[in-house]
Design a protein around this nucleic acid. Structure first.
Length: 593
RNA sequence: CGGGGCGUAGCGCAGCCUGGUAGCGCAUCUGCUUUGGGAGCAGAGGGUCGUAGGUUCGAAUCCUAUCGCCCCGACCA
């Protein structure tokens, strides 16, 4: 393919509003253009990568018997009213009316449509299980789209849905998809992890997210260095730490420490002074959070969370513990009014009508400090079990790197940043029940189908690949999704011999099945072509120039290692094959474990 | 939502404070010379200065509104 005929317009300078590496490089490489906040056009190079990844997805899903469909992006309001999400889904659901004033929305996901399709088609257990997927554009009107393709409003997604007669069969499919996803991301050639995640308010017994590891990832992940346990930080189980020995328990000393104006846990610990103490160890302090929990029956309740001073609360754990639908920090003004103390001096003692939860690492702890609910004062001698009657002890803290793994008890957690690119989820009968998607079982009884759903953010994955694979010069494409595999640089198109050799190599490599972009642009200095090639980042660069041909060689350069091999033109095909094999040997597929 | 910043040629920016009718680099086009890490010279095209009002003889510049874009935010519970 001749580059001079391709629509590839590189930019020397980084567009101002590109804030993450993948967006900067894709815009500079002329792969994408922004049309509006979170809405992009894909140019040929980008589309080639996207299509390649889609192809991997299709091939792997086909192995598990998944069937591809295509559903409408514009969906009728009625379906969403049936599932209850028309009102429940927030402003991310872009709603509008057609000329007849009928309600519609742009599909942010397709549970409703697929459920409708299946309920109108499938009637018997003999037609189950079935697993349908599509690759399609989604629209979610994000509050704050950012990070280029990683959190856009319109994006391409592979979404799949399975329907089963039994719970066990749904579980089987779940793990089949789990393994299919492992194959997909392994083939992609990136470092990734399947991660246990919180299943959220939707319910469902379990869910895994697939994360591409990258320093710029939005999600924190902890992974045991000894066993398989890998989880999203919002779910990671935290071990109960050994109780700090604070001596024999003494009664609660109210308002013991005067700590005027000292705010912040570390400063407070240092500021707690009396005859016997010049500051307290932070492990002997406690911190207190007041939440308002909202429940399915629309009631609310105050929940107080007590943790060791150096620990952070994990609101997701608190939410799940009290069985709330949603949990929010009690607004500061209301909290101050409720406790009678300014921020920094609130505490759990003596509060009425608050459900207290205490972190496991404080179970058995005594002689702690806590806010006195009186501005500028702290209590001393808190014994949660004694002073907080009715309190529940549970794991409610954020796990930390180097915490001991709760699963194997041996390893330590290692922290990673991840970009969530896929999720497998067991839906159960939430949609099938609400929408009457039923089948007749062996006994002729009507049953709601058990559903699973499985998503992969296609465009986000392509961006994530770049977030993980780049250097100061540009993108470093993994072979499987590189727009082209070989960038053939014709360094002197005006020279007949150079031209001849370059054209011959292009033909030869393409005939051998390689995807070659031949930079045959005239009047461009070699340096400029090198820069462009680095930016576009195809795995191999083949340079044909006057200088080399004088020695009877052309040069093959590995984009990632920057290693250059000089080969005779006749030996290029073999050298490219060898280089490809070498690249595949080094291909990162970690995470498949 | 709160706070901050920015909208001037395809991209990156200057000009604005102190009003006088728009400029630089890259990119694009033409010609000549160049050709191994973003070449040189000469010339050319391209902007109702986000939009709408207002002040003024005169507004990119001052005022008001509006739209768009970007960033940041909650060791305190």
């Amino acid at each position: 393919m001749k580059q001079s005929k391709q629509l590839i317009q590189t930019l020397r300078e980084t567009p101002k509003d590109a804030d993450v590496v993948s967006q900067q490089l894709m815009m500079r490489a002329g792969m994408i253009q922004k049309q509006a906040a979170g809405i992009y056009s894909y140019f040929p190079l980008a589309l080639r990568s996207i299509r390649k990844f889609e192809q991997i997805v299709r091939e792997e899903l086909a192995k598990d018997g998944c069937q591809e469909v295509l559903m409408p992006m514009v969906q009728p309001a009625e379906l969403w009213q049936e599932s209850g999400r028309w009102t429940f889904y927030g402003k991310e659901l872009l709603r509008f009316k057609d000329r007849k004033e009928a309600g519609f929305c742009l599909g942010p996901t397709h549970e409703e449509v697929i459920t409708d399709m299946v309920r109108r088609t499938v009637r018997s257990y003999k037609q189950l299980p079935i697993n349908l997927f599509q690759v399609q554009s989604k629209f979610r009107d994000e509050i704050r789209p950012r990070f280029g393709l990683m959190r856009g409003r319109e994006f391409i997604m592979k979404d799949g849905y399975s329907f089963h007669a039994t719970d066990a069969d749904c579980d089987r499919e779940y793990w089949a998809m789990f393994n299919a996803y492992k194959r997909i991301f392994s083939r992609l050639g990136v470092k990734f992890r399947p991660v246990e995640a919180d299943s959220g308010a939707i319910g469902g017994s379990f869910t895994h997210e697939f994360h591409v590891l990258a320093g710029s990832g939005e999600d924190a992940i902890l992974s045991c260095d000894s066993c398989d346990y890998t989880s999203n930080l919002e779910k990671t189980e935290a071990p109960a730490l050994a109780i700090t020995d604070n001596g024999a328990a003494f009664p609660l000393k109210r308002d013991h420490f005067a700590t005027p104006g000292v705010v912040g846990q570390v400063e407070q610990a240092a500021g707690m002074k009396d005859a016997d103490h010049d500051g307290m160890p932070i492990t002997q302090t406690s911190k207190f959070y007041l939440f308002r929990a909202m429940f399915a029956d629309e009631t609310t309740k105050l929940v107080g969370a007590v943790l060791r001073g150096d620990h952070e609360v994990n609101p997701v754990k608190v939410k799940n513990l009290v069985g709330a639908l949603d949990l929010e920090l009690f607004p500061l003004e209301e909290a101050e009014a409720f406790t009678g103390a300014k921020s920094g001096f609130m505490g759990p003692v003596g509060l009425k009508d608050v459900q207290m939860v205490v972190d496991l690492s404080l179970k058995g702890a005594v002689n702690l400090t806590c806010g006195a609910n009186k501005t500028d004062y702290h209590h001393f001698g808190l014994d949660p079990a004694r002073d907080l009657p009715g309190a529940t002890f549970a794991d409610i803290r954020l796990a930390l790197e180097q915490d001991t793994c709760t699963r194997c008890g041996k390893g330590k957690y290692q922290a990673y940043r991840g970009i969530e690119v896929g999720q497998v989820f067991k839906l159960g009968i939430k949609y099938s029940k609400a929408m009457g998607c039923t089948f007749l079982d062996e006994n002729g009884k009507d049953q709601p189908m058990i559903m699973g759903c499985y998503g992969i953010g296609v465009t986000r994955t392509v961006a994530a690949v770049i977030e993980q694979n780049f250097d100061e010069d540009g993108i470093i494409w993994p072979w499987p999704v590189a727009p082209y595999q070989v960038h053939l640089l014709n360094l002197d198109p005006a020279n007949a011999e150079v031209n001849l050799v370059a054209n011959r190599l292009e033909t030869e490599l393409e005939a051998a099945g390689f995807e070659v972009l031949h930079d045959d642009r005239e009047g461009m200095s070699p340096g400029a072509k090198f820069k462009d090639a680095d930016l576009l980042g195809f795995p191999l660069r083949l340079m044909v120039g006057t200088k080399g041909l004088k020695e009877g060689v052309v040069e093959l350069r590995d984009r990632r290692t920057k290693q250059v091999t000089k080969v005779a033109p006749d030996a290029v095909l073999g050298a490219v094959r060898t280089a490809k094999d070498r690249i595949f040997e080094g291909l990162e597929t970690a995470g498949g474990r």
